[in-house]
Write a protein that binds this DNA or RNA. Sequence first.
RNA 1: GGGGGCGUAGCUCAGUCGGUAGAGCAACGGCCUUUUAAGCCGUAGGUCGAAGGUUCGAUCCCUUCCGCCCUCACCA
Length: 483
Amino acid sequence: MEQESFLLQARKEKLEKIRSLGVDPYPYRFERTHSLRAVIEGFEDLSSKEEIISLVGRLISLRGHGKTSFAHLTDGRGKLQIYVRQDEVGENAYSLFKLLDVGDFLGVKGGLFRTKTGEPTLKVEEFKLLSKSLRPLPEKWHGLKDKELKYRQRYLDLIANPQTKMVFEKRTEIIRFLRRFLDERGFWEVETPILQPLYGGAFAQPFLTHHQALDQTLFLRIADELYLKRLIVGGLEMVYEFGKDFRNEGMDRTHNPEFTQLELYQAYADYQDIMDLTEEMITGLAQNLNSSFQLNYQGEAIDLSPPWRRLAVKDSLLKWGEVDIERASDEELKELCRSQGIDTTELSGRGKLIEKLLDQLVEPRLRQPTFLIDYPQEISPLAKSHRSKPKVVERFELFIGGLELGNAFTELNDPLEQRKRFQALTTEKGEESKIDEDFLTALEYGMPPTGGLGIGIDRLVMLLTDQPSIRDVILFPQLRPED
RNA sequence: GGGGGCGUAGCUCAGUCGGUAGAGCAACGGCCUUUUAAGCCGUAGGUCGAAGGUUCGAUCCCUUCCGCCCUCACCA
């Protein structure tokens, strides 16, 4: 802290010197004629015309040589060298330039030329300080490596590490593509409540908050599902929502307490249609982003070429668990769990046992794109029973590179059946979790046959940007407070 | 929550088999009109994550705590 104030002090003194020269270190405006990227791309043309241009940017390097200085400016899209000479800008202006630091924002005006080494450079005729920086930026050569600092002070990470900026640029492109993809198919983008009197649509602990005026407990949503289905009842037919969901559970490489999910619902579609849509959407995305179906995730080659494997839960466990879940007794399933080192004392019901076996035996093996389909009904209360297979529902989860990316159903639209499923859950849990009567009422008015999908956007970004942790694709991931 | 690793200057990192610490970059002063990790000369900057213990002496060993990372568990 002492050290920091020492460094701060030097900059504050410069700030005062600048003010005493009659210069405002935080002025309001500077007109730029070109972005730095435009200058680099149009350099030959601009320099041959000897045009005088105006540029802005942050000073990221500074090399003074007495009465002349070289520096680099960056404006977030590009980087350009500038060259300042005392005999060009005048003595007063040059002494002001000497008071500048790496980190300051600058507007410059001049013509372009190439240095001896051929680097495109702007010869400064005039410049204007646009904003004074009071703290030193991370070191120019090694950047900012400390993960904690990268997450806590993401702005420094973005300044110091171009790769970080690229990841988040791709994140923006991914979301932009998905919106366009759905908009073009006639989906409506909608917004549903984040503050909910009841929570549902997934199994997870919620965050609680309180509304003062209503004196009411509210929950931050764990999923959008039950509201989006109400809109299907309302006749919207094709809806989607990009939204933050909040789950009050553990944090790890693939879980952040708040995360972004894309949910979409399409009337008159079933889960087969949704599989087609998902495949088309994500392969289109990869093509758009990387111009290829091939990608590398954490050293592993992944081929997104369609069609993707569609593997039934039952077949997956036959293959990797050597068990027939239709025939095996509860005790046999438990035995298999135990042989895999799974603690079965807390597990009730075949559904949970099967889910555990999937976790352990199947999911880690799903490296290439795979729709795992037809899940046990008891762990899928919002999905419609399979049209021909007993005891399973029409549901899929999507796995790529071992990441669980999506979850989808042919939606259950039988209100009486839905009520039974909710009731079975509350008795199983042995607690008075409230049933969303308003949702059931909506179903009673009639919901058309519908397919629905949830995609974990953060994990999708991880996959497509080759990042190992969800924290690397969320600008401000959840951390414990310092001290 | 269990196990393992890490925490030293603003940043990136050395180091001390226990004798209160170094480098590069950044900073400050000086020289320098085509440099680009500019260069040269000089200066300053640290309660070595926090607290306690062992010791003549702790940044180093021990304990506890805090934070970060990995991993297991938990997690429709």
